[in-house]
Design a protein around this nucleic acid. Structure first.
Lengths: 233, 233
DNA sequence: TGCTGAAATTTGATATATCAAGCTCGCGAC
DNA sequence: GTCGCGAGCTTGATATATCAAATTTCAGCA
């Protein structure tokens, strides 16, 4: 066997080659969350199919998924409408907070030293990026930080569920983190979460994580919907 | 206008008239959660279509939904497989606990006296049904209790999200509540949740609700998967 | 016997056709 | 003028056809 003679390769993940339905879903989700498609707007299958240059089949699948995520509702034989307003964005942020808190609690119980060291390294990089005001880097580190905690918890289902509660896009994130004060607050919160994990203190980890996500989520929602109100007037 | 002369009617909800995809989804979800279709089993579109006597279109939509719920994974051009094991059931129970806790917290802040009285009435009925060992009634009251709290919170999105974390079917529920000790524990917990709501104490409400759902969830998961292990041997 | 590779098969992905429920709008009766 | 009613249109729901990737099968060769 030749495999014994060379380095072992990672198996490819077939799910990376995604089909049209995922592109359609992503495009629609982005447009809905960013407010480009307002709440209440109709999502016409044939119209979307023509606009996106695909058939109605992948459109239907994408719409079903949006429906399941709570971003759209379908009335049989009537049509699908977007349902995403400030109220729902707040609830999604709260859901995220509750779930991130729970996963942080589990991570505090299960994290090993290697993972803890990696998280600490991320926090140190965040400290630097925060001081420098390197926003794109901060966004990447943010994700890395939260993903590392999810990994440490070992909870894949919770991770997936949390990912589904995103109420901001990359652009919104950039705007928020453009403010130095917000960067400072976020860093302090991240540091507190790390400290709790380092002490393997589940209660503290959950509280710190939840407070962070609640505050940050509120900030995002307020900023996003205030902006929309302005643009509307 | 004749409407002024008679009682106002509630608007009909068109979503009650559901199509094939919802039936397919429900059938599959039930089969997966109950263990009838084991984790790892392939879900063949054409085979399911023939079995259920429908075309592949509603099957695809149902599979997409299951995928989004985390109960199945699809590898493009390869197929869809069930993914639901004890580990995931535990995570779903934890997600439910975190979310139910959050919604109870909000309910404690927002509940009005009328809703509180209704919840209290439900608890009193639970007391009677618990003593009598009336299991079907207890199941119904349980749902009524939790739904009333969800309503009091005003959080429709959270309510939907929580409903998606169900890891037991009606049958499992009956078996669990067949045990008098379990009925007693559940009643004490429900009473504690009500007391916290009555005091408008968000922290206590969240803690009581979460503890209840965590314990009850663990019990359900353990019972369900122990039973499967036995049947397998 | 064991390996290679091409053909056949399976299966999901996508496109298209068909059906029926709702909606729109205007004609006509009162 | 208003209400009733139906023809025609719109649209989602469902079924079927087509395409291509992935897998399997098996003949042919070393």
């Amino acid at each position: 066997m030749s495999t014994a003679a060379r380095a072992r390769l990672d198996p490819v993940d077939p799910s990376l080659l995604r089909g049209l339905r995922d592109h359609v879903h992503e495009a629609l989700r982005r447009a809905i969350v960013s407010g480009e498609i307002p709440s209440g707007a109709a999502l016409n299958e044939r119209q979307l199919a023509e606009e996106l240059g695909v058939s109605t089949t992948p459109i239907k699948e994408a719409l079903r998924r949006l429906e399941n995520e709570g971003l759209a509702v379908t009335e049989p034989r009537r049509g699908t409408r977007v349902t995403f307003d400030a109220r729902q964005a707040e609830e999604m942020a709260l859901a995220r907070a509750a779930l991130e808190g729970m996963i942080a609690r589990l991570a505090a119980q299960r994290v090993d030293d290697a993972a803890l060291a990696a998280i600490q390294a991320t926090v140190e990089q965040m400290r630097a990026a925060t001081a420098e005001g390197d926003v794109p880097r901060l966004i990447a580190l943010n994700e890395q930080f939260h993903d590392a905690i999810h990994d440490a918890s070992g909870c894949r289902y919770l991770h997936r569920l949390i990912e589904g509660q995103r109420v901001y896009d990359h652009t919104a994130r950039s705007i928020i983190l453009g403010d130095a004060e917000e960067r400072g607050r976020a860093f302090a919160e991240h540091a507190a979460i790390f400290e709790a994990l380092a002490r393997r203190d589940p209660d503290a980890a959950e509280t710190a994580m939840r407070d962070h996500v609640v505050r940050s989520g509120r900030h995002h929602v307020k900023a996003a919907f205030d902006r929309r109100k302005e643009q509307a007037s």
